[in-house]
Amino acid sequence: MANVEASKVDLFVKKMYQQRYLYLMSVPFIILVLIFNYIPIWGWIMSFQNFKLGRTFFEQEWVGLANFIQILSDKQFYLVLRNTLAMSVMGLIAGFTIPIIFAVSLNEVSHTGYKKIVQTISYLPHFVSWVVVAGIFYKLLSTDGGVVNDILMKLGFIGEPIQFMAKGKLFWWIVTLADIWKEMGWNSIIFISAITAIDPQLYDAAKVDGCGRFRQIWHITLPGIRSVVIVLLILSIGNLVRIGFEKQMLLSNPLVFDYSEVLDLYALKYGLGLNRFSFGTAIGMFSSLVSVCLLFTANGLFKHYSKESVM
């Protein structure tokens, strides 16, 4: 028995030695991650305290789960959670399909110069700040000379201008649309680069077999980028509750608050913004834990059904 144990350890050490270069290539960076990403997590302890600046760690007052109870008993919290999930699910669906369709269509453009120009231009909006994009959206949808209302009026679809921005029900769609507009080109870069890795011989073979363009896309291009898509998808599912707040804040107005308030804004407004470090940390910790659960679930599901996974 002891022998078996010893030989197992021996084997492990032996393999470790064999893979010493692999360790050499990864361990230094794992240590960096340990320092810069893991050490600061001691900050989570704050969420069990009533943290005040200027006190040492041991002088802080311990409050147990009080901060979490306060979060879970706030009605507002559930509202922002609903909005966050709604917008992130919509963003996830649109944010994957559209850049993929764009990347695939771009790949089908035969003229290289045109292809390059379209690609370069398409990612420009990524560099334009949300303030500007939100401003453009407001002007497009305005009732005071907004292009969308003008067109709809001229075509006779509507009798008088519609206040798109005042309709809470439309808000989620507007955010999703604005996000697509701004980030489609940028998000497609990773797919475009994955497509270029596909062996061109496969296309040649398919052409010989008489496959049309759509069948080539279906049988070669899409399977070719499948693993990238799945890895990205798993990572994004983990981020469902963490979607930032900038675009929602800039696109919202008092008439749609019930639909526009999101978790990260709530954390800022009631946490750090009021110097309530413990409360802010508690929300951060909550969303981190939810993220990790989502991540492992998604990872497990994809591993089981598609053999692709992150871990």
């Binding site: 401003g135 305005s142 206040q163 005042a166 008439l255």
Partner: peptide, 14 residues
């Protein structure tokens, strides 16, 4: 009618 919807720059423009 746009009072509570408009952004600062739209307001200034008017």
């Amino acid at each position: 009618k746009e009072s509570f919807v408009q952004k600062y720059d739209q307001y200034l423009a008017k």
